[in-house]
Design a protein around this nucleic acid. Structure first.
Length: 573
DNA sequence: TGGCGGTTGGGCTCTAAGTG
DNA sequence: CACTTAGAGCCCAACCGCCA
């Protein structure tokens, strides 16, 4: 077109139309000018529309060019007043030689310059188009992009680090990719409105240059923005919308593979769902290397059941991603890094029944240990509706004890026996376990042997004393039998004391009449037995009974009970 | 010494999970 | 989707210590 304008002007025509009236078609003009086929090929751009549709041999299309409006660089015009072919491209927006933005309007009257005219130096208003007012420089990435496109006019060209592309390929890349930004993504990126205007072209070029600069970080930022904005996180296609179609369909050529590689690279890092063979467009390598797998696959790879993996995810022992579909169905994905962890965890765990067997305890007791917090199951039925308990073996190991050799032969008793027949009260079992931890009770046996909790042997008397002490210290009431033991009296005597009302008893949750610490203290402060009093005075009880002027409050001669008791207040007035 | 109450093991049932 | 499997919880008879 620029060449035609010069031809027209040199031959005294006012407009191109007049040239069209003289010659029937473009070929006719070429013959008249004596141009060789090679010289004709070298001309860029469409011929005027009055000669019918232009044909392009190099893969370009008429739509890639501006047909009516002119763009120009004022500095270039000043050097030589002719139209450069590159300016005709719709995506051209800067001058590669001077690194300034092209002009499309007269700086004086603001009107666009029609390509119809042959005078390139002046606007219709008379202002000089070579005037540099309003020209401003553009940034470096945009210049290098523009230069690469310019270079593509003579063959494939490339930016550093990117594959080489032909001019139509560059145009395709700019047209599609340039429309995507963090603030706006087209739903139909196919046709671009108002690309013949400089502003539109500048926006596209600028956006692409920004994305390619520091590749692929800015592209990944764009992807992340799109991903965050998407309301559906379950489908890659739906999440990335038209961009997905653009990448895999609109710019499907081999030279654009770097775009898809960057996209799939992004998914590798940031897509929490799974990628599989359903994603037919992806490279096989991308599918194979994707680090997240489904619940089922994870279970298979880790050698456990899917439910186990699900429970691990549910109790947050391992990290998992969950996406809820609109139907309510849940999709899980698990990071490949967690697989090893899952296998180790699962192997190191036992069920409730198995734990009971290993510790030689009833299941009920295991549950008691769990609710007391001594055993901490990995997967618990208490929270959530897990099918099975999973108790780490390591925790069970803590309930195996080594014996301590005891020198004297003593009557021993197993923990299991204690549990079964001693009628431990609420919480006493866990107190016993804690006493074993704290070495207040020492297991009897060979030091080399590790014995499960249920089979541990304890010194019967020592343990009984420990338990009675614990109960009494805890303010618990004791039976009449135990009271007799503490007072150092016969069982029958204490029953008599209770019957006579000398030793107060209470009724509580425990069976039978119960004696409290308070009533014991009260009894001992108020009464004293003849035997004890005689012992203190180092006199014989019989002699004392006969000589003492004080009458006992109870005794064989008084009420037929078994032992004499005095009121202390009467003995020590 | 018989009654009472508590514990236990083992069988039974229910349900989630697994399988074809 | 029907059938099988496995684990948890319930139930009960047997048993023992405590009490009177």
């Amino acid at each position: 077109m620029g060449y035609l304008m010069r031809v027209a002007r040199a031959n005294g025509y006012e407009t191109l139309r007049q040239l069209g009236n003289t010659f029937r078609n473009f070929e006719g003009l070429c013959q008249a000018l004596g141009l060789s086929a090679q010289e004709t090929q070298g001309l860029l751009g469409p011929h005027p529309s009055f000669w019918g549709p232009s044909t392009f041999s190099n893969g370009l299309a008429a739509i890639d060019f501006n047909h009516s409006q002119m763009r120009w660089c004022p500095l270039c015009l000043r050097e030589s007043a002719h139209l450069r072919g590159l300016w005709l491209l719709k995506i051209s927006c800067i001058c590669n030689r001077h690194s300034i933005r092209l002009h499309e309007r007269c700086h004086s009257c603001g009107s666009t310059q029609r390509l119809e005219r042959v005078n390139l130096e002046q606007c219709a208003c008379g202002a000089w188009l070579a005037d540099t007012r309003g020209a401003y420089r553009v940034d470096e990435p945009l210049v290098s992009l523009s230069r690469a496109i310019h270079a593509a006019m003579k063959g494939k060209s490339a930016l550093a680090g990117f594959p080489a592309m032909s001019l139509p390929e560059w145009i395709r890349l700019i047209g599609y990719l340039g429309q995507y930004s963090e603030t706006y993504q087209p739903t139909k990126p196919g046709k671009i409105a108002n690309l013949h205007q400089l502003d539109t072209a500048t926006t596209l070029m600028h956006q692409v240059s920004r994305l390619l600069d520091g590749w692929p970080e800015n592209f990944h930022v764009l992807l992340m923005t799109i991903q965050r904005q998407a309301d559906s996180q379950s489908s890659i296609r739906r999440t990335f919308g038209s961009l997905y179609r653009t990448l895999y369909k609109d710019v499907s050529g081999e030279c654009f593979q770097f775009l898809r590689d960057a996209f799939e690279g992004y998914l590798h890092e940031h897509w929490s769902g799974v990628v599989n063979k359903r994603h037919k467009a992806f490279k096989l390598d991308t599918i194979a290397r994707h680090p997240r797998v489904t619940l089922k696959q994870a279970a298979k790879k880790a050698g456990v059941t899917p439910s186990t993996v699900r429970h691990f995810v549910r109790v947050e022992v391992i990290a998992g991603n969950q996406i809820e579909l609109p139907s309510g169905r849940k999709l899980h994905s698990i990071d490949e890094q967690s697989l090893k962890q899952i296998a180790v965890l699962a192997k190191g765990c036992v069920t409730l029944g198995e734990a009971a067997k290993q510790l030689a305890l009833p299941k009920r007791r295991i549950r008691e240990l769990i609710s007391a917090g001594i055993l901490k199951p990995l997967v618990s039925r208490a929270h959530g509706n897990a099918a099975t308990w999973l108790i780490p073996k390591q925790q069970l190991q803590a309930l195996f004890f080594d014996g301590t050799e005891s020198s004297k032969m003593t009557q021993t008793i197993s923990v299991r026996y204690i549990l079964k027949y001693w009628h431990l009260r609420d919480g006493e079992f866990q107190t016993l376990v804690r006493a074993l931890f704290g070495h207040q009770l020492e297991p009897v046996g060979k030091p080399t042997e590790s014995v499960p909790l249920g089979n541990i042997l304890l010194d019967e008397q020592q343990t009984w004393r420990w338990l009675a002490e614990k109960r009494f210290a805890g303010g618990a009431s004791i039976s009449v039998d135990e009271a007799a033991q503490r007072l150092g009296l016969k069982q029958q005597v204490v029953y008599d004391l209770v019957r006579l009302g000398l030793l107060a008893t209470i009724e509580d949750a425990l069976p039978g009449r119960r004696v409290t610490q308070a009533s014991l203290d009260d009894f001992q402060a108020t009464y004293v037995s003849l035997a004890e009093y005689a012992g203190a005075l180092k006199k014989s009880p019989r002699w004392l009974l006969q000589t003492l002027p004080v009458r006992p409050i109870s005794g064989p001669m008084i009420d037929g009970s078994r032992q004499y008791f005095y009121r202390r207040a009467e003995l020590y007035p």
